[in-house]
Design a binder for these strands. Structure first.
Length: 668
DNA sequence: GCAAGGTC
């Protein structure tokens, strides 16, 4: 009689075994997989999905198979975690009961079903659902076992199939028609393509933007101190209108109105993944780096699970005990200060999910336990955790109106009276504007009048941190994948830099897809899919219906693409060519382009063989032609991107070549 | 060499 418990990941297997066995569970290896054992029970952790959807091998060759054939092709399940699967099968032979204890969300349900399908159907199955791996939650969950929700798993499966079919068919189509094959392929997908479209859209707005000039009037007022006030109208679109007002202003003004009030600023809400990544961005981490660092902290037992949609601490979290642990750390003062409060009432965010608790520290680290990056992320998480229990900050806001010869000017002052949570969480700059002491009716000397000329600004480019938030708002991707999608755009050569700039290739791909494969370029595809998945989960429709309908939509897309092959190829190849143009040839003024010969890559003149001007390029790495231009040679700067390394800014390829020549001479 | 979603 053996009870087999299956969890989504190794760490939960370990914790659940510890809790249920009262710390007596022993770790054993089975076929290289970790299994936790105590009398009558064995607990094994999967590694997320243990199988993957794919096409049968006869569809593997991109050039031999028409991408359209993928639409109706069979979809098979390929084991991806062979060691875990064989351990699982061995364990099932002795099992008289199986409990699925994967994460409490849709993918968790599917991961559980994937495991069950590999095991004999004769064993009784149950399911437990928990939102935090605390003693209280786990014990409660195991006392209230439920059934597997096969409809919920089907919903996840529909998503897998639709993503595979659309993604693979369109990826191959776009790669084949642009002749970008091998490791340079171009990709298309339900999440990455709308994300890229967003960037291309913004870039077009910036290109089309025409700045409008406007004017503002500032006056410097003086009593015992000085302050600057701005004309109440704000922006003047006509300079003459502002000039008339300026000419009317005399050397004296009156402080006609003074309002002062206190404003409290609530502490921040607990960290979910999105907010964590945004906060990490503000202190200089890219989302991918922040995520990797957080994962390290998590696997080493310093913080809770970093992939969560939850912004409300579970009731079972013992905050006081947790904060008390920090009285023996360098956060001692902060912890002691919080512990003085009679009640520790945390803030709560709008999103309350079932998957995991908000990100919080679970044990006390010292600086020497961690590397610099880990420490900075750990400190951020600790301070955020503390801040969610802290008091509001209190500001004094002052609004004054100054009248000068019938014209009104405003000035705002703000002063931080009580730091509150800001002491614990000092990451936002405190912007105080201190006005001199003033009283209503007071006479002021006007010592300076400034007619400032400004112009309207184009919308800003997205930075990585902004995009994570934007993706969440649009429903694109998940807490676990959003940062990967951004990395993917870089890896494909669709974007460069931070803030992100799309390449001409990206423009061409989006232009083509928007014309012929509209659904895949819109976040709406995900919204519709989500609604369909809800219906599948509720048992209102079948998974097969949803997948079939989606296949038919893709058929329509391919009919359109098929008759426009020439237009598609032309658009794509023009875009690709654009990205390879480095500038004008200094010898003959033709375009200089990135070319390839048997000896490797180089920059060559398009007027070859009449002109043989050329410049060398590094042998490996993806070459990105940036929008920055060399003042001396007029050539675009070049960046080299190698997987797993920082981008190398080669600068102007002509300057680079000349320097290299110079250094060679110095050597010999 | 395809997607997106888990996890390491």
């Amino acid at each position: 009689m053996m009870h087999l418990i299956i969890t989504e990941k190794h760490s939960t297997a370990k914790r659940i075994a510890q809790i249920l066995s009262g710390g007596k569970a022993k770790q054993k290896k089975l076929n290289g997989a970790n299994v936790y054992e105590y009398p009558d029970t064995k607990v094994i952790g999967l590694s997320g999905h243990i199988v993957n959807v794919d096409f049968p091998p006869e569809y593997n060759n991109w050039s031999d198979v028409d991408p359209q054939e993928l639409i109706g092709a069979d979809i098979i399940l390929v084991p991806t975690q062979k060691k875990i699967i064989s351990a699982l099968r061995k364990l099932a032979k002795e099992a008289s009961r199986i409990t699925i204890a994967t994460d409490y969300d849709r993918e968790g349900e599917l991961i559980g079903v994937e495991a069950l399908r590999l095991l004999p159907s004769s064993i009784p199955i149950d399911r437990v659902r928990y939102s935090a791996i605390t003693q209280a939650d786990i014990i409660k969950a195991f006392a209230n076992t439920t059934k597997i929700d096969f409809n919920l798993a089907s919903a996840g499966e529909a998503r897998q199939k639709i993503d595979l079919v659309w993604g693979a068919a369109l990826t191959r189509f776009i790669s084949l028609s642009s002749r970008r094959l091998g490791k340079n392929f171009l990709s298309v997908g339900r999440v990455q393509t709308p994300l890229l479209a967003l960037l291309v859209e913004r870039e077009k707005e910036i290109d089309a933007f025409e700045p409008t000039p406007y004017w503002e009037i500032y006056v410097t007022c003086k009593n015992d101190g000085e302050f600057v006030a701005k004309h109440v109208k704000g922006r003047f679109l006509e300079k003459s209108e502002a000039e008339i007002i300026v000419s009317r202003l005399g050397p004296k003004g009156t402080l006609s109105k003074l309002e002062q009030r206190r404003k409290t600023q609530a502490p921040p809400v607990p960290f979910d993944t999105t907010e964590f990544l945004r906060a990490a961005s503000a202190i200089g981490f890219t989302p991918a780096n922040a995520m990797r660092t957080a994962e390290n902290l998590y696997t080493n037992g310093w913080i809770s699970y970093p992939r969560t949609d939850n912004t409300v601490y579970p009731k079972s979290l013992d905050a006081r005990a947790l904060i008390k642990m920090f009285t023996e750390s360098e956060f001692l003062d902060y912890a002691a200060s919080l512990l003085k409060k009679k009640v520790l009432k945390p803030t709560r965010g709008r999103k309350e999910a079932t998957d995991h608790p908000p990100i919080h520290p679970v044990s006390v680290a010292n600086r020497r336990d961690l590397n610099t990056y880990e420490w900075r992320i750990y400190e951020l998480i600790v301070r955020r955790f503390f801040a969610t229990f802290a008091s509001p900050a209190v500001w004094e806001r002052t609004k004054v109106t100054v009248e000068i010869d019938g014209e009104l000017f405003n000035a705002d002052g703000s002063r931080l009276l009580e730091e509150g949570w800001r002491w614990y969480y000092p990451y936002y700059a405190v912007k105080e504007t201190i006005l001199p002491s003033l009283r209503e009716g007071e006479l002021l000397e006007i010592i300076e009048v400034d007619l400032a000329e400004k112009e309207t600004q184009p919308p800003p480019r997205y930075k990585q941190g902004d995009l994570i938030k934007k993706m969440e708002d649009l429903g694109l991707g998940t807490k676990s994948t959003r940062h990967e999608m951004i990395s993917k755009l870089y890896a494909r050569g669709y974007v460069h830099g931070n803030p992100l700039r799309p390449t001409s290739t990206a423009h061409a791909v989006i232009e083509t897809l928007e014309k012929y494969a509209t659904p895949i370029t819109k976040p709406d595809m995900t919204c519709v899919l989500e609604k369909d998945m809800d219906k599948i989960a509720e048992g209102m429709i079948d998974e097969e219906n949803v997948v079939q309908e989606s296949r038919e939509m893709l058929d329509v897309v391919f009919e359109k693409l098929d008759v426009s092959m020439e237009d598609v190829s032309r658009t794509l190849q023009e875009g690709l060519r654009e990205d390879k143009i480095v500038g004008k040839c200094p010898d003959c003024n033709s375009d200089l382009m990135i070319r390839r010969s048997r000896r490797g890559r180089f920059i060559g003149c398009t007027n070859y063989p009449n002109c043989s001007f050329s410049l060398p390029l590094p042998k490996s790495g993806r070459i990105i032609v940036t929008s920055k231009k060399c003042e001396e040679h007029g050539l675009h700067h070049v960046k080299i991107i190698t997987k797993g390394r920082r981008p190398w800014d080669l600068g102007c390829p002509h300057c680079n070549y000349l320097e290299w020549q110079k250094s060679k001479k110095e050597l010999f």
